[in-house]
Simulated scan of single mutants.
Amino acid sequence: MSERFGLASHVLRHWETEGLLSPSRTSSGHRLYSRTDLFRAAAIINAKRAALSLDDIRALLDGGTDGRQARLHHHRDVLARRIVEQQAALDLLDQVLACRHSDPADCPRFRALLAEQVGDGPPPATPATPEEH
């Protein structure tokens, strides 16, 4: 399992301690991961990528519908806000990379992206002309 997912074995043991995985054991005590365990591990990995805590992941995998839905709706809202913020950061970087000004602060398009933070109101609906870029 650790090789399949590129995880350290202590991570899998931790998930087991936390009750997220429960592999069967051989007579000598070695863990045997089932196909269900593989899917649970994949779900945990993807939930961690989405920044869910182990408690949230436990609720996702094992919690009742009410608790699961409430936690996931909350986390979805948080993640959606992060995506918007990250997209704005990406747009800003793309603008600087495309800008011909020696100082991006002199670029009208760059300024438009920052206008709301500066207090100039929302950015204009139409982008600056290519000559201003």
Results as ranks from 00 to 15, higher is better:
57 I>E: 14
35 R>L: 13
54 L>S: 07
64 G>F: 12
110 F>E: 03
5 F>W: 11
130 P>N: 05
8 A>Y: 09
109 R>A: 13
129 T>E: 09
15 W>L: 05
51 A>W: 04
19 G>D: 08
115 A>G: 09
66 D>S: 11
82 R>W: 06
41 A>M: 15
86 Q>M: 15
123 P>M: 10
61 L>N: 14
10 H>S: 15
99 C>M: 06
82 R>K: 14
33 Y>G: 00
70 A>L: 09
13 R>D: 05
12 L>C: 01
83 I>R: 08
55 D>T: 12
111 R>A: 15
16 E>F: 02
72 L>R: 00
57 I>S: 12
47 A>Y: 12
59 A>P: 00
46 N>C: 08
11 V>D: 00
10 H>L: 10
111 R>N: 12
91 D>P: 00
28 S>D: 01
29 G>V: 04
10 H>M: 09
78 V>C: 09
34 S>F: 04
19 G>F: 06
113 L>I: 05
66 D>N: 05
16 E>N: 02
66 D>P: 01
58 R>A: 15
74 H>Q: 08
57 I>M: 13
51 A>F: 07
12 L>Y: 00
22 S>Y: 09
115 A>D: 12
90 L>H: 11
39 F>L: 14
67 G>T: 11
96 V>S: 06
53 S>D: 09
111 R>D: 08
133 H>L: 15
129 T>W: 00
29 G>L: 04
44 I>Q: 01
126 T>S: 08
43 A>S: 15
5 F>E: 06
55 D>C: 02
129 T>A: 14
88 A>W: 04
48 K>A: 10
87 Q>E: 13
95 Q>A: 14
77 D>E: 08
57 I>W: 12
39 F>I: 12
43 A>T: 12
5 F>N: 03
130 P>W: 11
41 A>P: 00
93 L>K: 03
18 E>F: 02
41 A>V: 15
50 A>S: 12
122 P>W: 06
25 R>V: 05
69 Q>N: 07
100 R>P: 01
73 H>M: 01
64 G>I: 13
60 L>N: 06
62 D>Q: 13
63 G>T: 12
85 E>N: 10
110 F>S: 05
49 R>F: 13
75 H>K: 09
88 A>G: 05
75 H>F: 02
73 H>L: 07
30 H>T: 02
66 D>I: 12
21 L>S: 02
30 H>W: 09
1 M>N: 00
116 E>T: 07
23 P>C: 03
112 A>E: 09
76 R>L: 10
101 H>L: 05
120 D>Y: 06
5 F>R: 04
66 D>Q: 10
62 D>R: 11
16 E>M: 02
131 E>I: 13
100 R>K: 03
117 Q>I: 05
97 L>C: 10
98 A>G: 09
4 R>D: 07
107 C>D: 06
62 D>Y: 15
18 E>N: 00
51 A>H: 13
